[in-house]
Nucleic acid binder design. Structure first.
Lengths: 237, 237
DNA sequence: CCAAAAGTGTTGTTCATACACCCATGT
DNA sequence: ACATGGGTGTATGAACAACACTTTTGG
C-alpha cells in the first residue's frame, strides 16, 4: 500500500458511528413502539430508541441484530436499514453518525422481564413521549416506510405470531394505516396473493365462532417480495 | 454534562465516514453512470464511484451535495440517500463506513472539461467496468431503486433537460427498464397524472414533424410525490 | 335464543392492455 | 412523394370498491 494513500486516509477525521432501532410491535389492537429510558439523570424522563455503538469488527447489519438481541433476546427478526442520520448537531455530546434500522416484532414473543433491566416500555404510536435527539424524526420516517411497505406486501404478519387469523391481520393493517378496511375486500386481496396457507386450527377465546389460523408460505413470500401488490384502497388520486 | 456519559462516548472507537455517489445520466439513448478513475497507480484501470469524506461540521446531505458539485459543477440536483455500507472488510485500507447517495443528472448539463481533471467518464449501464470495493453492489442497489422509483413517479425527467418531449421520456423509461413500452399507453398514463405542462414550442432537428416540449409542474409534483402511480405494465404477477 | 364476530358473492366502475391509422414535415 | 417519427382512440378483460346477509357458537 502506498504511503500517499495511507496519508489520505489518516488525514480524515473520524466519527462515532451509532445505531438506533425503531422497534414496532402489535398487541392485537394498537401499533406500538419499544422505547428505553435514557440513563442520564439530568435528562430524566427522556425516552429514546434502543441504540448502541458499532463495534470495530462488526458490520452494520450484524450490529443491529446484536443490539436488538441484547434488548429483546430475539433472533431472526425482520430488520431493515432505514436511513442514516448525520447532522453535525444531532447529538450535542459529540458528533455521531447514526444508522437507523427498523424492526418488526411480535409483542407476544417479547419477554417482559428483560424490559426492566433496560427500563424499556411499549408506547402506543398515537401517544409517544418526546424523544431524545432526532429520534422523533427517525420514528416518523420509519412509520412512513412501514406504511409504504405494508401497502405493497403483506409484510404485516412479521408483527404477528406465526399462526394468525385474517381478522388479526386486518386489525394490524387498520392500526398501521389508521383507517378502517372492508373485511371482504381485504381478505380477498390477501388470499389472492396465494401467500397464505390455511390451517385446520381455529383461534379460541377471542370470538365465539373462532377464526381459522393461517401461516405464511415463506418460500413463495421471499420469491415474490419484489412483486408489488397494492394493499390499500385509493391508490388513484 | 456528566462525566460517565462522556466516558461512554470516549470509550467507543471511531470510524472513517465516507460518501459515495451513484450518478445516473441519460444521453437520449442510453442510461449511463459517471465514474472516476482512482488515482492509485497500483490499481490502474480501477474505476470507482465519485466519493469523499464527510467533513467535521458537515451534514451527510450537505457533504453529498458538495462532492457532487466538486465533480460536476452542478447544484440543485436530485440526490437521495440510498443505503449505508459498513462491512468491516469493504475497504481493505481501513475500516470505512460509506453512505451511498444516488443522483440523477442531465448529461447535457455536465461540463466535459471538468471530467478531465477528475478523469471522469460516462459508462453505459450495460457495459460497466469492474468497480472498486463494494461499489458494484452499490450500483446494483441504486439501479433497483431507480427502477422502483420510476415505476411509481415520473421521476425520470430529472435526467432530462428542463424542457423535454414525451418521446424522450419514453426512451428514458425504456432505457431504465430495458424494455419497450407502448407509446399510446405511455403517454396516456403520463398525461393522466396532470403533472406535465405542454409548451408551445416544438423540438427541432430530431424528427421531421417535431414533438411538443413539456415541462413538469414542480409544485404539483412535489405535493403528489407520495401518491404512488403505476408506471409499468405487469405489476400483476 | 341472542349477541358477537367470521365468513362469503355480486355488481358497477375504473383502469390496464393491446392494437392501427392519420398527421406533419424535411428531404 | 415518401420516409420518419409524432400523435391519437377504442374495445376487451381484469381489478377494485361498495355493499348485506348467513353462519357459528359461547353465554
Amino acid at each position: 500500500m502506498r504511503l500517499d494513500i495511507l496519508k489520505q486516509y489518516e488525514s480524515q477525521t473520524k466519527c462515532l458511528v451509532a445505531l438506533d432501532s425503531i422497534i414496532f410491535g402489535f398487541d392485537g389492537e394498537q401499533l406500538k413502539l419499544l422505547l428505553v429510558k435514557r440513563g442520564i439523570e439530568e435528562e430524566q424522563h427522556t425516552w429514546s430508541l434502543m441504540g448502541g455503538w458499532v463495534q470495530p469488527d462488526e458490520g452494520l447489519e450484524q450490529a443491529s441484530n446484536r443490539i436488538l438481541f441484547e434488548l429483546t433476546d430475539l433472533k431472526d427478526i425482520y430488520l431493515e436499514q432505514l436511513h442514516t442520520f448525520g447532522n453535525p448537531s444531532r447529538d450535542p455530546v459529540e458528533r455521531t453518525v447514526s444508522v437507523a434500522y427498523f424492526a418488526l416484532i411480535n409483542v407476544e414473543d417479547y419477554d417482559h422481564k428483560i424490559s426492566k433491566s433496560f427500563e424499556a416500555q411499549w408506547f402506543a404510536m398515537k401517544d409517544l413521549p418526546k424523544l431524545l435527539f432526532d429520534h422523533g424524526a427517525m420514528v416518523d420516517m420509519a412509520i412512513q416506510n412501514l406504511r409504504y411497505k405494508a401497502s405493497q406486501h403483506p409484510i404485516g404478519f412479521e408483527l404477528l405470531p406465526e399462526k394468525f387469523t385474517i381478522p388479526q391481520l386486518q386489525k394490524l393493517y387498520e392500526a398501521i394505516f389508521g383507517m378502517e378496511l372492508d373485511k371482504r375486500n381485504f381478505s380477498r386481496k390477501l388470499l389472492s396473493t396465494n401467500l397464505l396457507v390455511k390451517l385446520d386450527e381455529k383461534q379460541k377465546g377471542y370470538s365465539k365462532k373462532g377464526a381459522y389460523f393461517y401461516k405464511i408460505d415463506e418460500d413463495k413470500y421471499k420469491k415474490q417480495f419484489n412483486t408489488f401488490l397494492n394493499f390499500l384502497p385509493g391508490n388513484n388520486a
